[in-house]
Design a protein around this nucleic acid. Structure first.
Lengths: 239, 239, 239, 239
DNA sequence: GATGAATGAGTGTTCATTCAT
DNA sequence: TATGAATGAACACTCATTCAT
């Protein structure tokens, strides 16, 4: 969405090779840029490298993005997809225990964000926030706050239904979010150096975190924590 | 320790101002560099700026550090506080409940690391790990592993004494460490942009985290979680 | 003349709009280029801008002119008006006083060159002569020398008929030419910035120059300088 | 004056090679830049070339001038020395005929400006005025207007003393100035290509111009125009 | 014939590093 | 020891030119 494609008028999808490339170009560039920015940081990433990785020349990059800084912003913007509305409605339709909702939440997050390149954006933001305050601000508005709200709603549901202890919402929200955020940061920095150093697979890490969190939250943990084999989730039955 | 002071003829401490400055130079440079590296990252930090902030000329910086890269490594090395042996013995002498030990651990960590510039090192490592793999490795050896071991020992103590549930050590260790690490990362990146955005003071954040963790770990949380007014800790009575 | 129209199958003037455009293309490009070259100089003028101002794409420009440099040369060549033979014969038929001939000469020059875009060519040549020596040479042969010869012939006429003092021809020729040349240069450079700064309208400037010149040349200035109301010129009665 | 010398504290004129260079650097750079800007125009001049001609590296140039544009401005500013005040007072003390004053004026102008590199500035301004409007404005204020005023004062003197005809001042001022300006423009553009093409030496050109001008101005030209062997000028007896 | 996407050599500018003083 | 002038390799960005469509 809003990919800078200098409006190609003709070619009703039966287009030739050249114009198909033209449409694909910005995305390829953004992907290459995401990789490199995440890996090396903004300043240490050379635009030639980005172009080369996208398979084009340096000049071509500047055809689509007027400057390195705008490229950076586009990378962040493009990868901050507003999935939260989707998730919100998804979670509202769930009927199971709030523990299961939380579990499902972790699972879905991992599959759609955590284990994809999109997780690199978070690393990027933490690394470059001070150099790009406007972008950091934007990121908070678009990602952090909606994410917090999502978690908060789940916690509230748990407390409302008597499943969770009465806890201060803000603190508990962090308790839930932080393990996910940390995993993204780790995987895109130190974890990429010596992969096995965490000692745990991401799956195990997340299971442990969930277990700890739910034990801390649930009124009768021992009862709930034998994980019900399949959460009763309506959409995306493949999940 | 290991501060590079080029042949200092042991100046018997009654020396003139000049040589006292000379001794202080490297530390001042390292401090300035730490600030800037944390703030802007390695690549975006200019050595002129480091020198200027330390109050010396650019040439002088290169008198003490042969290159920007070596300066970076020195910054990390110098600020990696290897206090774990000290903390280890401290914790061994503690007689209170393991909950209190953990509480004390958080408190002491916050006071000695979390709220100081040293916390910036962690941010630095996460941001630059991929550009400096050797030093990331070093950081893991010197900080992460000892830290993990420390936490692990506390958890083991809790389980041994029947205070904590039997939980898998690795996962639980992360549950304890991650909130601290995350706080350092936040405060040195996004938190520095819009400070109040977390919604919680660091203190509240840590209290919430501890509360959640202990609830998740303790066998009889409700009994232990009324925080005993003063933990019975021997050293550093001021704490 | 010599406009580069790639094999135009003589399209018998009843042709469609497209081919009429095709014929007009080079002229439109040359006009646009003249404007921009005069305004910003050769190096600072972008071929995209030229193309855009001519309403075509960059690629089209290169269809007609093989390089920016050739475009420049074509601009100069096309705009160098070789009207001197025409003017020569015009002046030979004049019967009035040589003062009036000179006056007429100024007037006609102003109307046909001085106040048109063609005057920009002189500015261009003075600005770029060193970068385009061959074309500067060409300009001298085609414009400067014929112009000098024209003036010289008029001066000779004046001296031959006893109207003008006996003066060295070369010097006097400059006395006559320089005010015109200067006016072209001024109008196309500084004059375009702050137009009124000259303090005089071009007309007043030229009248003053003529007055000064004739006073300096005429044997009995006071007699001749009451400008005879209408010079007895044969061709172009509208002038 | 106002040469950007990053204040060299020590070295009381017995300085070593390095610091003497440092003082000379900006002037050398400005000289090199003047040459090249005049020769090729602003856009076509490469900063490497300027640096090379000044015998330094490209980086050094940027030590003294923050950008190519500032270098250009400095070139103009530095070469527009406020000579006009000097000349004004000089001319006020002259006692001879106004014809002689005008003659002296031409002579002195030629020696101090016309035949020096400073004349290139005028060419520069005419070529680049549209690209640097602020500078063109500055040039008019600092050079053109004072120059006009100087000439005007001389003409007024001639008319006041009954030596010159009563003529409109503005027009006559141009009559006097334009030959000088044109000479500068010619010499720094086409004249530099094919030097002999003017047909006249600058001296002859100027003599002719003066002769024509004075003939046009003087009440009794034949009397005054036998040039008095040596103008009675007080200052600078060597002139 | 006309387009405009693609190119890459070239330009202004920066910055870590050196070294004469 | 400390300086800061000097360097030049490296970078972001431009723009004349090409060429597939």
């Amino acid at each position: 969405m809003s990919v800078p494609t200098p409006y190609d008028p003709h070619s009703p999808e039966g287009s030739a090779k050249r114009s198909r490339r033209k449409e694909a170009r910005p995305r390829e560039l953004l992907d290459a840029a995401l990789d490199l920015f995440v890996e090396k940081g903004f300043a240490a990433t050379r635009v030639d490298e980005v172009a080369a990785r996208a398979g084009v020349s340096k000049g071509t990059l500047f055809l689509y993005f007027p400057s390195k800084e705008e490229l950076f912003k586009a990378v962040v913007r493009e990868n901050i997809v507003g999935r939260f509305t989707e998730w919100n409605s998804e979670l509202e339709t769930m009927t199971g225990s709030t523990s299961d909702v939380l579990r499902y939440c972790y699972k879905v997050w991992w599959e759609r964000i955590g284990c994809t390149k999109a997780s690199g954006i978070t690393k990027l933001m933490f690394s470059e926030a001070q150099n790009f305050p406007e972008i950091a601000e934007f990121y908070q508005q678009e990602v952090i706050f909606p994410g917090q709200a999502l978690i908060r709603r789940i916690l509230q549901r748990g407390m409302d239904r008597g499943e969770f202890r009465q806890v201060p919402l803000d603190g508990a929200t962090y308790l839930v979010m932080v393990p996910m955020i940390y995993l993204m940061l780790w995987e895109n920095s130190m974890g990429a150096c010596s992969p096995q150093v965490m000692g745990l697979t991401p799956q195990n890490y997340m299971d442990s975190a969930l277990d700890g969190i739910l034990h801390g939250l649930c009124v009768r943990p021992e009862a709930t924590l034998a994980p019900s084999p399949s959460p009763t989730v309506s959409p995306h039955s493949s999940v």
